[in-house]
């Protein structure tokens, strides 16, 4: 890369990095694609589902013929074709309180590609505990949100959104929305790995495609946060 601040050193850092993409759906597809093509040397992708026809509008790594296949299998195939110089580990598991520690410990960055807060909170907690940066993203309709959690360096997901929003049976999502947010998640991960730029810490980005606006909400760490607060530990 010949962008200022990247260069050969940056490329080597990317090559040496290990990123976990948790969920390989609407967010995980673009995020992992841009991480793979940027040359992140080791990607672990985690997903417990099979590709469905209704996923194809936004989950760009799964194509028509992949319906019924494991998402991790379909995604690994595409990612290693995009860049044969990287290692992709496919983990066909549901993320639970039992395995979340093992899945996140010791990695450089975890990217949130989940579709529910229950698992997001598990990842948030494990990442804070293991001091792994966690890049939160979520989408619905034409709205997306993004926040980078840097353990010890700012608020966590629970500081910003303390209570799980109610589960909806169905999330209508315009495919381009997770496209936007997933790409931004990849960008945040690349910035953290290379040490370039200023991460989205202590601020939540709200993207609204309806009026095509990007806004920031300031988020402060809550000292009483049960995950990252001083009193909580």
């Amino acid at each position: 890369m010949i962008i200022n601040g990247f260069g050969k050193t940056g490329q080597r850092k990317l090559k040496a990095a290990h990123v976990v993409v948790a969920g390989i759906g609407g967010l995980g597809s673009p995020a992992s694609s841009y991480l793979a093509t940027a040359g992140v040397g080791h990607l672990t992708i985690i997903d417990s589902q099979r590709a469905k026809l209704s996923n194809l509008n936004r989950q760009m790594l799964h194509w028509g013929p992949d319906v019924g296949r494991l998402k991790v299998e379909s995604a690994t195939e595409k990612l290693t074709t995009m860049n044969s110089n990287i290692k992709v580990d496919a983990i066909f598991e549901q993320i639970t309180s039992e395995n979340v520690n093992r899945l996140t410990k010791g990695v450089d960055v975890v990217v949130d590609g989940m579709d529910n807060y229950h698992t997001r909170y598990l990842l948030n907690e494990a990442c804070v505990r293991n001091r792994v940066p966690f890049i939160h993203g979520a989408v619905e309709g034409l709205v997306g949100q993004l926040m980078t959690i840097l353990p010890g360096g700012g608020p966590c997901l629970k500081c910003a959104i303390p209570k799980e929003p109610p589960k909806k049976p169905l999330f209508p999502v315009l495919g381009a929305t997770p496209g936007v947010i997933g790409c931004l998640q990849a960008m945040e991960a690349i910035k953290l790995i290379t040490g370039v730029g200023k991460p989205l810490v202590g601020r939540m980005l709200i993207f609204n495609g309806m009026d095509m606006t990007f806004d920031e909400i300031k988020v402060n760490q809550d000292p009483s946060c049960q995950v990252c607060g001083r009193q909580g530990r």
Binding site: G23, G25, G26, L27, G28, D112, G113, M114, D115, N116, Y117, G137, A138, V139, E140, G141, V143, G144, Q145, I161, P165, K167, K168, F171, V173, P178, I206, I217, K218
Partner: peptide, 12 residues
């Protein structure tokens, strides 16, 4: 005081 009101989204 600054009061931010927003609807967190959940999908992925």
């Amino acid at each position: 005081a600054l009061v931010a009101i927003f609807p967190p989204v959940a999908g992925g």
